Simulated scan of single mutants.
Amino acid sequence: MVGNDRREHIRTAMSAKVKVVHAEQGEFIFSTRDISDGGVFIVVDTEPFTPSLGDKVTVQVQGLPVPAPVLEMVVVRKTNDGYGLQFDQNGD
């Protein structure tokens, strides 16, 4: 690890459309900025999406020839342009 970067997984730039569903806030379509073995970063610019850290969401990649799996994720980071989501290892 270099400097303040505490990530344990290497990020790969990837732009894809994903459907994000939050229990209280509803369903949204966002673009991803990057993905890693640990999670994904979604770009949130104009949508009124304001989850709290620790909130659980489901995420599904859109636009594939067959439906992608729905993945359980946890909001772990907020920046000026979006949120870092981590794959939910507990599956609660």
Rank of each mutant, 00 (worst) to 15 (best):
N90S: 14
D5G: 08
G38W: 10
E27A: 14
A68F: 00
F28N: 06
I29F: 06
I35L: 11
Q62S: 00
Q60W: 01
P65K: 13
P65G: 04
P65H: 04
F49K: 13
M14G: 08
F30Q: 03
I10F: 14
L71S: 05
K17F: 06
D88K: 06
R7M: 13
K78A: 08
R77V: 12
D88T: 06
G54H: 08
F87M: 08
H22T: 11
A16V: 02
D37Q: 10
E24M: 09
F49N: 09
G63F: 01
V59H: 00
Q86C: 08
G54F: 06
I35R: 05
T32V: 03
V70L: 02
N80D: 06
V21S: 04
D81Q: 11
T50G: 11
G39Y: 05
E27T: 14
D45G: 07
I42H: 00
A16N: 01
M1I: 11
G91E: 03
F49Y: 07
G91C: 03
L53Q: 07
K56D: 02
K56A: 07
I10Y: 14
K17V: 07
L53C: 02
H22P: 09
V43E: 02
F41W: 09
T50S: 13
S52L: 11
D81W: 03
Q60S: 03
Y83R: 07
V66R: 14
H9Y: 14
V74I: 13
A23S: 13
V66I: 01
R7Y: 15
E8R: 13
G84A: 04
Y83M: 09
V2Y: 14
S36H: 13
N80F: 05
E24R: 15
R77Q: 08
T32H: 04
A13L: 13
T46F: 14
T12P: 04
A23W: 05
G91H: 04
R7T: 10
V2S: 15
V74D: 02
M73N: 00
T46C: 14
A23F: 06
T79M: 00
I29N: 10
T79D: 01
D5K: 15
V21Y: 01
P48C: 13
V18S: 00
K56S: 06
G63A: 01
R6G: 11
E47W: 07
D55R: 07
G26D: 10
R11H: 11
V44S: 08
T32A: 06
D5E: 15
R6P: 12
V57T: 05
L64P: 03
K78T: 11
I35Q: 12
D55I: 07
K17Q: 09
G82F: 02
F49D: 12
E8D: 10
V40R: 03
V44Y: 01
D88N: 10
F30V: 07
P51R: 05
P51G: 05
